[in-house]
């Protein structure tokens, strides 16, 4: 495998580059001979991950890539192309050759926001991708301090009417921000966002320090804080309860029809032969059924939520519609 030589890394570094010499192996490129799609896969497949190595999205993707290598019998090369909230990687993905040699991880709402928000000037739109399979839906959790009076989503709505509440987001137009706006609209509340564009750590700090009332975050990211007793989840914005926080009620139980989180799935560039898309979809489905794999995902705080190509495509467009209307809200607020 590519990264299995810690000692060699150190040794090579110490000996400078000479030791490596002129070894060179061919890696797949976008324009390699277009393979007959019926033979797919014939060679290594590149998986573009539009996020930094080591983040929550990347960990799930790398786990899947390793498992897919066994399932498909070809190497899967994970390529991190971070930048602009995923936009750099998504652009590369949309522009890749639609021959089945390149696919990638996409997250909703991130991708949809970048595609719909005109000020971002994205080169792709919501139709630039062929949806293959969904791996994870990581629902948005609402958490408060452990000693808070708020015990449920209903309490939260009541408290919000009584006074002013603030909630953390990881920046304008992020999943947390959109979740908050959708929640405010559906529940008739006015919880104010405090944006922490540098990510979850500053947001969590501000919450634990008592500067912000509500911590909004994906279940997967919030678990450590919950387990440490720094926060208590009062609800998740989903139809069904999360396996990780079974005690937290859902927004639907409270009569608030908001379902949002980070949905991570895999797509090919638009124009990729449908049988390739479907075969990848089946392979991902098979991997997700494996119990050992499910356990690996659970350790990473990820709840498997498989959708095949057709289901994922329908879900994709449904999300695009609902996010589109929230984006208008953001614009109006200026």
């Amino acid at each position: 495998m590519r990264f299995t030589r810690p000692l060699a890394v150190a040794a090579a570094a110490a000996l400078a580059m000479t030791a490596v010499g002129c070894a060179s192996l061919s890696r797949p490129t976008d324009s390699g001979e277009a393979s007959e799609s019926t033979d797919w896969p014939t060679g290594p497949i590149t998986m573009i991950v539009a996020f930094d190595a080591g983040g929550g999205s990347d960990i799930g993707a790398r786990l899947l890539a390793t498992a897919l290598e066994d399932e498909l019998g070809v190497p899967i090369v994970v390529e991190n192309r971070p930048g602009a909230g995923g936009q750099v990687g998504y652009t590369a993905l949309a522009n890749a050759a639609p021959d089945g040699s390149t696919f990638g991880l996409t997250t909703i709402p991130g991708l949809i926001v970048s595609a719909l928000d005109e000020s971002r000037g994205a080169e792709y739109d919501v139709d630039s991708f062929a949806q293959s399979a969904l791996q994870v839906i990581d629902p948005m959790a609402i958490a408060v301090t452990p000693d808070s009076d708020i015990q449920s989503i209903e309490d939260l709505v009541a408290a919000s009417e009584a006074g002013e509440l603030t909630a953390t987001t990881t920046g304008i137009g992020t999943a947390e921000h959109i979740a908050l706006l959708q929640f405010n609209e559906a529940a008739g509340t006015d919880i104010r966002p405090v944006h922490f564009a540098d990510g979850a750590a500053p947001a969590t700090t501000a919450f634990l320090g008592g500067n912000v009332d509500i911590l909004l975050s994906n279940v997967g990211d919030i678990m450590p804080t919950l387990e440490n007793g720094g926060a208590r989840a009062v609800g998740v914005l989903a139809e069904e309860r999360s396996i990780f926080v079974p005690d937290a009620g859902t927004s639907y139980e409270a009569g608030i029809e908001v379902m949002i989180g980070s949905s991570r799935g895999y797509v090919f560039p638009d124009g990729t032969p449908q049988d390739v898309v479907d075969r990848m979809s089946d392979a991902i489905g098979a991997v997700l059924e494996d119990e050992a794999f499910q356990e690996q995902m659970a350790n990473a705080g990820l709840q498997p939520a498989y959708m095949d190509a057709a289901e994922y495509e329908a879900y994709w467009h449904e999300q695009a519609d609902s996010i589109g209307s929230v984006l208008e809200l953001i614009r109006e607020e200026g």
Binding site: A8, V9, V20, S24
Partner: peptide, 14 residues
């Protein structure tokens, strides 16, 4: 060639 080999193959910096 050497630098490419070092970064691309050993360090997984593509």
């Amino acid at each position: 060639l050497g630098v490419f080999g070092l970064f691309d193959m050993l360090l997984a910096v593509h």
